[in-house]
Nucleic acid binder design. Structure first.
Lengths: 170, 170
DNA sequence: GCAATTTACTTCGATATCTAACTATTATGT
DNA sequence: ACATAATAGTTAGATATCGAAGTAAATTGC
């Protein structure tokens, strides 16, 4: 995944220069923001997947296990899952299918709303989550590539973007 | 793509609190960084794809057209494309296949290395790029959701991550 | 000069995501 | 009440990515 030879220049800076040279100065910073986010995601996703592969988890599946294990009852309606993880209903179905096939969660009918389904974490799911979070903390989250103060700045800058996009209300 | 109802709290902040509560304080900031990047990518990818859909482009295809159109000869070996866009050879093959099927680029044999193949942008490719970059600038890059100064901070923070990851040498 | 290695690209199989269409159930409005 | 609209979830189709294996050509190292 990681290229053997690093480039001898910053390709995003170069793209920014190109944008300015073509008269698109007003959009150059935005282009750099978007491209930087895309690349950072690629980097982190590769690191996360490498850490989780041994547990047969992806980041999406890990996030669902985390969400459920932090819940009082260990279960949540599927639509709440979609809202929390910000993914389409179809993706929720797929993630739950996959975890259910591995015996880490199960579907449970909703008490009162017969349209709705709950997903519930099972003991094996809790066990896998405990092991996976330990590895992920050690191998990725402990060193995200930025010192603490800058890490918090990055989180706050992105929170502003998410707020503006309607992810949540402050 | 965007949920109709925003959450009444920041789910990443809540996850951070959970990390601290479980004794994973040392990894909490890193978790928040990684999760924030993942969510920001999701937001921007949706906006970018919505803008590019009318041109039958994806962000990856757009990036390749941009890269080629900024090149002196309008062509580049496939391995250079992979290095620049930071994607696997298989992904390069796929993106080029797709653009070639649409008549926007073509493959050209390398002059001296018979293993290598160049991808060359064609006049229709340049025309589509000109239109697409205009729309993308207007609809996404002009307002990335952050004021200029903060946008530049974000780009610099991510550049530090990328530098640490070996994307390029400063 | 020739075997072994490296490099370039393609093919294949598995995943994950999105959009759109579809079924079932619940809520709304007159 | 009852037709209409909204909501919950699944299914289907298209796309994109990755990892690993495979083919071909160039480089290397005796």
């Amino acid at each position: 995944m990681v290229p053997p030879k690093p480039l001898r220049f910053d390709p995003i800076r170069e793209a920014h220069d190109q944008w300015v040279a073509h008269g698109w100065s007003q959009s150059a910073d935005g282009m750099a923001v978007v491209t930087s986010i895309m690349r950072a995601q690629q980097i982190y996703l590769a690191r996360v997947n490498a850490a989780l592969r041994r547990f047969d988890l992806t980041f999406a599946r890990f996030e669902l296990l985390a969400l459920l294990s932090f819940t009082r009852k260990g279960s949540l309606p599927l639509n709440k899952v979609g809202a929390r993880l910000q993914v389409q209903p179809a993706s929720v179905t797929h993630v739950v299918d996959r975890l259910e096939a591995d015996g880490l969660v199960c579907r449970v009918p909703h008490d009162t709303d017969r349209r709705a389904t709950l997903v519930k974490i099972l003991p094996p799911g809790r066990a896998v989550f405990r092991k996976a979070v330990k590895v992920l903390n050690e191998e990725v989250f402990l060193d995200p590539g930025l010192p603490g103060e800058e890490a918090r700045s990055l989180v706050n800058l992105i929170a502003a973007i998410r707020l503006g996009e309607g992810d949540f209300v402050g």
